[in-house]
Design a protein around this nucleic acid. Sequence first.
DNA 1: CACTCGAATGAATTCGAAGTCATTTGGTTG
DNA 2: CAACCAAATGACTTCGAATTCATTCGAGTG
Lengths: 342, 342
Amino acid sequence: MEKNSGNNNKLVPQVSSKRATSYDVARLAGVSQSAVSRCFKTGASVSVKTREKVRKAADELGYQPNAIARGLITRRSNIVAVVITEFTTLNYPEMTSRLNEHLAKHDIHILLFTVGPQSDMTVVLDQIWQYQVDGIIASAPFSEAEIQRCAKRGIPLVFYNRICNDSAVSTVGCDHAEGVKILIDRLVRDGAKRFVVLSGPDDSAVARERLRGATEQIELHRLSMSVLGGDYTYESGVRLTQQVIDGSSLPDAFVCANDVMAIACIDTLRGADLAVPEDVKVVGFDGITVGQWHAYQLTTIEQPLDRMIEATVSMLLERIEDITLPAEKRLFAGKYIDGASA
Amino acid sequence: MEKNSGNNNKLVPQVSSKRATSYDVARLAGVSQSAVSRCFKTGASVSVKTREKVRKAADELGYQPNAIARGLITRRSNIVAVVITEFTTLNYPEMTSRLNEHLAKHDIHILLFTVGPQSDMTVVLDQIWQYQVDGIIASAPFSEAEIQRCAKRGIPLVFYNRICNDSAVSTVGCDHAEGVKILIDRLVRDGAKRFVVLSGPDDSAVARERLRGATEQIELHRLSMSVLGGDYTYESGVRLTQQVIDGSSLPDAFVCANDVMAIACIDTLRGADLAVPEDVKVVGFDGITVGQWHAYQLTTIEQPLDRMIEATVSMLLERIEDITLPAEKRLFAGKYIDGASA
DNA sequence: CACTCGAATGAATTCGAAGTCATTTGGTTG
DNA sequence: CAACCAAATGACTTCGAATTCATTCGAGTG
């Protein structure tokens, strides 16, 4: 039993009790290992007497089935990979935590992966394969080839708030274009004629969708607009707004790529002694908490995060159960928040 | 680019190829399974020729070692549990994402666990045991018994921003009391005499520490203060500030439990036509991004998140390598942010 | 060319739980 | 009481990679 006597005279951790295995429990309960295993599986054929003996022995030893060993034989890890970008401004961390709350109800846990500019998606996928995850939830850019790799492995994949129109893959998202159109309509109804769009980064499909919504709806009303490209950050909102203020003429309304830029816009306008919404109107997109604070009371479109997260989880779980289910795209309408900035 | 033309309409998953094992690779490369295994272990004794053959075969089959099987035999899962509360206002989700970036460098991944008011910590710990994690990072309340359970299992545990003075457990945190004292000193130097402390929830040790700092330092200066109990939220900040405004007299300064409450305080004061800092000064704690936006420019103490996260990771890794290392408490000083609110 | 010695290799074993299958148990029926 | 059938049980095998250990290879030496 003293197997660590010879191997390493320095650094013997001496973790007194190596964790108990199903064999240990079986021995203590006077049953077979198979019986122990069955006791931890719902619906298995075990007598009340045996179940009770095993439960007692397991409690005594502090036994918990080893999920690693179980996963090896069942080919189910009960682990889902969540892939997000390192870009924390986008609230992905919070989404992750919320996803976890839903998945936990199904005894599924989240293994977290972040992709940054330097870390290659290919490398991340390799790591994901290693852990034999049951499914993937992604809020990060996948190439068509990478999507195909998942399909080939038979690992269900659901995108959260990513637009992949040209690919047969499951997605959950918010109707960005439609949301912006609602905002534009309200602005027009309130008399706005000249628009400045503070857009998001070109490489963001969401930003392009929002821009498309704005462009189409403003053209529909045969009004004029100009577009300035930002990157979702407060700083870019400040910079672009200042550019406009320094320019020849002010627009009637700023249509911003997200709430953070809208808030930056409001701050900058106020800094130039311009009143919002009297002198200029400002609208955002997302419905973040900060936007509703007294200082801003942003007019915006709120994404139905709860619904979206729930949909993501249920779509993934369905596809874990039945990998042959066809891809599905679910698009939720945003909710117009009638703030005081427009 | 239209590569999905053929299979798109019926969408056949084509799971044909169950994932390749080391035996498959071995057969294709004409070597033994042992050789394959060695090729994926750095420092193992393999000839260049063999390594090359195996690498080629592995690439061809898209082989990645099964981390589950590996974990079973090595007793190292390369997984660390991160336990946070569901309370997303506290930025734990963001911390999680940052921790992940650091741990990923060491090929360690995060399995996420959230504890809510209803979900028992005991249940969560049971789940953690099942996954044979190598260590635990916790930002959630553990009882002494729960801490002992981890110790007994030989699983290293590091607390992030939790105060556990009465327990021999490793922690990383910010010196809250000291930070508040710096703020008080500045306020006093600028002439403040009467203070209102908008405190955090009683059951938060961090809140109590910050309150202690305020109390001690105000007493040191032989000045007066009153304390109102909130819960870190914007709403509670608004409510308490309004109470004060509605009361008989205004203080010279509000000392808030965190930045969010400080911002609520500023918003509410402004709503009552009071100027900050001219009529009343306001200070917060944390150094959140929003606090630095133009509308607020909060005077506060910034927690050195990067340092703290780095410390958490390195302390945990050290203890995973050598479980016998004694517990250690690391306390970082916050950085005074000289804003425009005090 | 025989002889070392270390590097490289593969067969066999191991980790822990779950599934398979043959066997036993216990309760019911004629 | 024999016969029967379903429920309960345990011996054995399986999952996939790492490790142990005995063996083989190959370069270098006298």
